[in-house]
Amino acid sequence: MAEAVKQLPRIVIHEKLCKACSICVDFCPTNVLELKGSVVAVRNLEACTRCQLCDLRCPDFAIQVFD
């Protein structure tokens, strides 16, 4: 059976809620995120393993990972 094309997750960042504390950036095990000015941005979506540590540790309800 042919291997299915790897589906990428969808990372939603609520920019109005993000306070750029960098918790998600620092705790991401695969360095998916980066700080861009006063908000967090996705740098390397392919590396995301859907572990959701960014969502769990975000104090500001500002980031969500959808499958």
């Binding site: 306070k19 504390c21 769990l56 104090p59």
Partner: peptide
């Protein structure tokens, strides 16, 4: 579980209270 329109909360950037609330 959150009241609409109340976010962003007053806690400082990086404050752990938001993580505990979640």
């Amino acid at each position: 579980y959150l009241r609409p329109g109340k976010l962003p909360h007053i806690w400082c950037p990086g404050c752990g209270h938001g993580i505990v609330l979640k």
